Simulated assay, not measured.
Amino acid sequence: MLSLKGIHHIAIIASDYEKSKRFYTEILGFKIDSEINREERKSFKLDLSLNGEYVIELFSFPEPPKRPSRPESTGLRHLAFKVDNIEEAIEELLRHDVQPEPIRIDHLTGKKFTFFSDPDDLPLELYEA
């Protein structure tokens, strides 16, 4: 068995780099650790962290192909974020015109959760911890 220590990062390719950069930093609150212009690839790479932990690499590429993400397709299904208060988190999303789905209750844990999408329709989840 591998001796994994945790998840190092999640890579996301954005169709509109600036729009996604604003979404992940200004709406979701990720901190920019570094931003690199990879001129030879016509690409940017943005390293983002949350609560001091490196989490997301956000990339731009010229004309990336679309990947189906809904309703249920093979591959990464969604990315979930822990929150203390889901109602407060939803209010913040709504202030930025991000429309989450109605709150659901996890029948196994009794915890509240909801889904919303990033600018490229990547499914994201808020899960009340």
Rank of each mutant, 00 (worst) to 15 (best):
residue 1 M to P: 11
residue 2 L to I: 00
residue 4 L to D: 11
residue 7 I to F: 11
residue 7 I to R: 09
residue 8 H to D: 12
residue 9 H to V: 08
residue 10 I to L: 15
residue 10 I to M: 10
residue 10 I to D: 13
residue 10 I to N: 14
residue 12 I to A: 03
residue 13 I to V: 11
residue 14 A to N: 09
residue 17 Y to F: 09
residue 17 Y to E: 05
residue 21 K to Y: 01
residue 21 K to M: 07
residue 22 R to I: 10
residue 24 Y to R: 02
residue 24 Y to D: 03
residue 25 T to M: 07
residue 28 L to S: 01
residue 28 L to H: 05
residue 29 G to C: 03
residue 30 F to M: 01
residue 31 K to V: 08
residue 32 I to Q: 01
residue 32 I to A: 00
residue 33 D to W: 10
residue 35 E to Y: 12
residue 37 N to T: 10
residue 38 R to K: 06
residue 38 R to G: 05
residue 39 E to F: 06
residue 39 E to N: 13
residue 40 E to R: 02
residue 41 R to G: 09
residue 41 R to E: 04
residue 42 K to N: 12
residue 42 K to E: 00
residue 42 K to C: 10
residue 43 S to F: 03
residue 43 S to N: 07
residue 44 F to M: 08
residue 44 F to N: 10
residue 45 K to R: 13
residue 45 K to A: 06
residue 45 K to H: 11
residue 45 K to F: 00
residue 45 K to W: 07
residue 46 L to N: 05
residue 46 L to D: 01
residue 48 L to M: 08
residue 48 L to I: 08
residue 49 S to E: 06
residue 49 S to R: 03
residue 50 L to D: 04
residue 50 L to Q: 08
residue 50 L to E: 00
residue 51 N to H: 12
residue 52 G to M: 00
residue 53 E to T: 15
residue 54 Y to N: 03
residue 55 V to S: 13
residue 55 V to I: 15
residue 56 I to N: 06
residue 56 I to T: 00
residue 58 L to A: 01
residue 59 F to T: 02
residue 60 S to G: 05
residue 60 S to M: 03
residue 61 F to G: 06
residue 61 F to W: 04
residue 62 P to N: 00
residue 62 P to L: 00
residue 64 P to Q: 05
residue 64 P to D: 04
residue 65 P to W: 13
residue 65 P to Y: 12
residue 66 K to F: 14
residue 66 K to T: 14
residue 66 K to Y: 12
residue 66 K to H: 03
residue 67 R to I: 01
residue 68 P to I: 08
residue 68 P to Q: 15
residue 69 S to Y: 15
residue 69 S to Q: 12
residue 70 R to I: 11
residue 70 R to T: 02
residue 71 P to Q: 12
residue 72 E to H: 13
residue 72 E to C: 13
residue 74 T to N: 09
residue 77 R to A: 15
residue 78 H to E: 03
residue 79 L to A: 03
residue 79 L to F: 03
residue 79 L to Q: 09
residue 79 L to N: 06
residue 80 A to K: 07
residue 80 A to G: 02
residue 82 K to T: 14
residue 82 K to G: 14
residue 85 N to E: 05
residue 85 N to H: 12
residue 87 E to H: 03
residue 88 E to P: 12
residue 88 E to V: 11
residue 89 A to K: 05
residue 91 E to S: 10
residue 92 E to C: 09
residue 92 E to G: 05
residue 92 E to L: 09
residue 93 L to M: 04
residue 93 L to R: 03
residue 93 L to W: 02
residue 94 L to S: 10
residue 94 L to Y: 03
residue 97 D to I: 08
residue 98 V to W: 07
residue 101 E to P: 02
residue 101 E to L: 14
residue 101 E to H: 14
residue 102 P to Y: 02
residue 103 I to F: 05
residue 103 I to C: 02
residue 104 R to H: 13
residue 105 I to M: 09
residue 106 D to F: 09
residue 106 D to A: 05
residue 107 H to R: 15
residue 107 H to M: 13
residue 107 H to V: 11
residue 108 L to F: 13
residue 109 T to G: 07
residue 109 T to A: 10
residue 111 K to Q: 11
residue 112 K to Y: 13
residue 114 T to M: 05
residue 114 T to H: 05
residue 115 F to H: 04
residue 116 F to N: 04
residue 116 F to H: 01
residue 118 D to K: 01
residue 118 D to I: 00
residue 119 P to W: 01
residue 121 D to V: 10
residue 122 L to T: 11
residue 123 P to Y: 06
residue 123 P to M: 06
residue 124 L to Y: 04
residue 126 L to Y: 10
residue 126 L to W: 09
residue 129 A to G: 14
residue 129 A to C: 13
